[in-house]
Nucleic acid binder design. Structure first.
Lengths: 98, 98
DNA sequence: CGTGTAAGGAATTCTGACACG
DNA sequence: CGTGTAAGGAATTCTGACACG
């Protein structure tokens, strides 16, 4: 299920180069709950390619003037849908209903 | 063709954690032509997941007592085979021979 | 609200070299 | 041959805060 795309191994400086977003912006979006990098023992943030794709999407939204709160809400909705789908799949498998 | 696996974005400290090899060893294997990380403007090495897999293979060989020179030769042989296959494919496509 | 910046400290990375063997 | 280590410098990252708006 999880592959290279989800492995958190990229430091914030590299994320900056890859996305064009400032380090300040990247940290701020984390603060607002849009991304959640991992931390090394020492405390440095590590991002995945999935995080980078997310950041690029966030950048697009922000350019359209969408506030971080809005972006957050949309993410939560999508997350809910995914969970619902998964539950549905589990139920179908369990009860063999069609 | 090239995906996340080949993107060079991982710094040497993270490679150390991922492979268990010392920073010294990682640099040494580069010196011997077994891997070739990219460099940022400032000069820090950046590795890909493919590099990490290669390093794990190198570590196995080294544990078996194989010297870096030997490992190097094997790599060159494999590289040659790949090139030959590619040329063959090109020729077949070009002359439509069967 | 979103982002820039200066501040001070701690950890990272780099190179060339000496060491052992 | 392969790897450890101390050395000195340069760049990175972190947090909390002030600034503007």
């Amino acid at each position: 299920m999880s592959s290279y795309k989800d492995k958190k191994v990229i430091s914030i400086g590299t994320v900056n180069e890859l996305t064009g977003l400032s380090v300040r912006q990247i940290r701020y979006y984390e603060d607002k709950g849009l991304i959640y990098p991992e931390r090394t023992k020492r405390g440095t943030r590590k991002y995945s390619f999935a995080d980078i794709e997310m950041l690029l999407q966030i950048a697009d939204k922000r350019e359209e003037g969408v506030q971080t709160g809005e972006i957050r809400k949309d993410l939560e909705k999508k997350e809910k849908k995914v969970v619902e789908q998964m539950l549905r799949g589990q139920l179908n498998a369990h009860f063999k209903m069609k």
